[in-house]
């Protein structure tokens, strides 16, 4: 099947969406590429898939580089696929801001899942101003509409990105490895705000029980800032390379979904995410307009007599008319 070119029309996209839903993986891959293009093709994909989304449990896996996110994703999705589920993975890495290129290396750890039939897509952020909030939700919807469940989103947790993952996932798993104690400490608020579940990975390494104890202490001290709806995050110990603890993790993830459904929190979270996504797109559009305003002659760039704040207000008045 040929990829419809941008503007090829919604019927070609609808055809791809139909094929994707009946299990044509190449069609699913093409739809994901169209979403990545943004603009009209992405809008067409959104229209073609919207009637079929909302079924998948979207699980975010975040944590510091090297903590074992890809290895956990591999073991977890392999286990689920062998149990008869149809998991898919979206592995997100940042694009180089200088060249726009990227090395997407998460599949290195996912040969097992690939052999078990898990659909894996690597995705570069491509400099989207809104980070994950812009790039990922549309791709998740394509996988959801294709009938994959769960959809596991792996993201590098540094600074803002770990907060962004909540913009894409129903359940957020934060992975910590022994020796990352200081990083966790420094990042405490950020990690606690996003975590529904914690994993202490590399349980085969010295310091794993310490890491667990530290997490427990932090949770004791700061229940006030944990995420609403599903209570204190549980902590699962794993050795992802051996598959140890992955069954427990799968149970914890499923248990969290049950909690979300029982309390009505799932709907609330998804509604909040929708608003966050609209906001991210809006910010992206406004940022583009701001760039235009500063370069277009019609809008007169900044004048020497104005303070920067005054200039910004003047331009904003013109832009927002």
């Amino acid at each position: 099947m040929e990829a419809p070119e941008p503007g090829a029309g919604s019927s070609a996209v609808a055809e791809l969406a139909g094929a994707s839903r009946s299990g044509d993986r190449r069609a699913t891959a093409r739809l994901l590429s169209l979403v990545e293009r943004g603009g009209d093709p992405a809008d067409e994909v959104a229209s073609a898939t919207q009637a079929h989304v909302g079924e998948a449990h979207v699980v975010g896996i975040t944590g510091a580089p090297g903590s074992g996110k890809s290895t956990i994703t591999n073991s977890l999705t392999t286990l689920l696929a062998e149990a008869g589920r149809r998991p898919a993975v979206l592995a997100v890495d940042p694009s180089s801001p200088l060249t726009g290129g990227a090395i997407l290396g998460d599949r290195v750890r996912m040969s097992g899942a690939s052999e078990a039939g898990v659909f894996i897509r690597s995705m570069a952020t491509r400099g989207h101003a809104g980070g994950l909030a812009l790039a990922v939700p549309g791709a998740v919807r394509v996988l959801d509409a294709a009938g994959f469940d769960p959809v596991v989103v792996e993201t590098v947790g540094v600074g803002q990105v770990e907060v962004d993952v909540t913009a894409a996932a129903d359940t957020t798993v934060v992975v910590v490895a022994p020796g990352w104690g200081d990083a966790v400490q420094a990042n405490k608020a950020g990690l606690l705000e996003v975590a529904d579940l914690f994993v202490v990975n590399k349980a085969d390494r010295p310091g794993a029980t310490d890491a667990r104890r530290n997490l427990d202490l932090m949770l004791d001290l700061s229940t006030a800032i944990t995420r609403p709806g599903t209570g204190r995050p549980s902590i699962t110990m794993t050795t992802a390379t051996e598959g140890d603890g992955i069954g427990e993790l799968a149970a914890a993830v499923a248990g969290h979904l049950d909690l979300l459904c029982e309390g009505g929190e799932l709907g609330q979270r998804r509604e909040k995410r929708r608003i966050a996504e609209v906001r991210a797109h809006l910010e992206h559009l406004l940022a583009g307009a701001a760039d235009e305003a500063l370069t277009t002659e019609g809008l007169q760039p900044v004048q020497a007599s104005e303070s920067p704040m005054m200039a910004a207000r003047r331009l904003a008045r013109k832009l927002l008319g």
Binding site: R30, S95, S96, T99, G101, A102, S114, E115, I120, S122
Partner: peptide, 29 residues
Amino acid sequence: MLRDAGMEVVYLGLRQTTDNIVAAVEQED
């Protein structure tokens, strides 16, 4: 080299099977 030229490199690394490579090419478009 390819990343620095602005490409997106899906790196599979060592010991891949043809099945794995074909699956990656398909899924990664």
